[in-house]
Amino acid sequence: MSKKKNTHSTGTPATTLLDREAVPYTVHSYTHDPAAANYGMEAAEAIGVPPARVFKTLLVSTGEPGSAALAVGIIPVNRSLDLKAMATALGLKKVEMADPALAERRTGYVVGGISPLGQRNRSRTIIDTSAMALETVYVSGGHRGLDLELAPADLQRLTEAEVAHIAGH
């Protein structure tokens, strides 16, 4: 995998982080279709890789007070987040999907383009175990139509993520 700079003029916080940390990654740009019903599946099809290698970034509300009230789950785009498993991984009784507007404010990214990398405010992060068996994974680069391919160990290190089985069916 070669290291490629983002071809967009300003880059994104995600690519800036990867460059600063000298992490090898590959940029995969595609034309986003505003009518796409599922951003992650759109990315997998556009890039031409199996959906199990493309990971979406989902935020959950933990119900805890203050800024720690959100957590990040990173799962394959062809799976859903198992909220009970996510809660267990976080040591909580339950979690629920975060309000999209809150997720955007917290991360600095728009829904459908939320990257697990370079978020405005870092949240506790859990990566699904399936990622760790892959040579590389694809995650959003910070906007719709931009995915970044990198080693799952680098993703885990940069997000300070824990690994747990959090993907449902």
Rank of each mutant, 00 (worst) to 15 (best):
K5H: 04
G118P: 02
L70N: 14
V163D: 01
G142A: 03
T125G: 05
M86S: 10
A131T: 05
G113K: 09
A22Y: 12
R53W: 07
A22T: 11
A43V: 03
V60Y: 13
S130G: 07
L148N: 01
P13K: 03
A37F: 13
R106P: 04
G73K: 06
K5A: 06
Q119P: 07
G11C: 05
K5D: 02
S80D: 15
E104G: 06
T107F: 05
R120K: 14
A164E: 02
H169Q: 15
A36P: 09
Y109G: 05
P65H: 14
V23M: 01
R53A: 05
E96L: 08
A133N: 11
A46E: 13
T129G: 06
M132G: 09
Y109K: 03
E162A: 11
S67L: 13
K3L: 01
I166W: 01
D154W: 13
L102Y: 08
T125S: 10
G118W: 00
G48T: 09
G113Q: 02
A151Y: 10
A44L: 11
K56N: 13
G142I: 01
A14K: 00
M132Q: 13
S140T: 08
A101S: 13
L92R: 12
P152Q: 07
P51I: 12
A133L: 11
Y109M: 07
N78I: 11
K93A: 10
D82F: 10
L134A: 09
T10M: 08
A85K: 13
A68M: 15
K56P: 09
L70E: 14
D33A: 09
V23S: 00
K84H: 12
L134I: 08
G108I: 09
G11M: 01
L155W: 05
G73H: 08
G11K: 01
A52N: 14
K94H: 14
V60R: 07
S123A: 14
A35P: 08
A69C: 15
E64I: 05
P152E: 04
P116V: 00
A36F: 10
H8M: 01
P13C: 05
T129S: 12
S61K: 11
V27G: 00
R79K: 13
T159Q: 03
A98D: 06
L90D: 09
Y138A: 08
K93S: 12
R105W: 11
L155N: 03
I47A: 03
L158S: 02
L148R: 00
L81T: 07
L150W: 05
R144C: 02
E96Q: 10
A35N: 12
T57H: 04
P13W: 03
T12C: 01
G118R: 00
M86Q: 12
L59I: 02
Y39T: 08
S80R: 15
A161N: 02
A161I: 04
L70H: 15
V27W: 00
T15D: 00
E64D: 14
T26V: 07
P24N: 01
P24C: 00
I74D: 07
R106A: 13
L18Q: 00
T16N: 04
A89Q: 03
L59P: 01
P100W: 12
D154N: 12
Y25G: 00
V110F: 15
S61P: 04
E45G: 11
G91A: 06
H169R: 10
M97V: 09
A164D: 06
I126K: 04
P34T: 04
G142Q: 02
A103Q: 06
G112T: 10
T10L: 13
S115Y: 04
A89G: 01
T57I: 02
I75W: 03
P76L: 08
M41R: 15
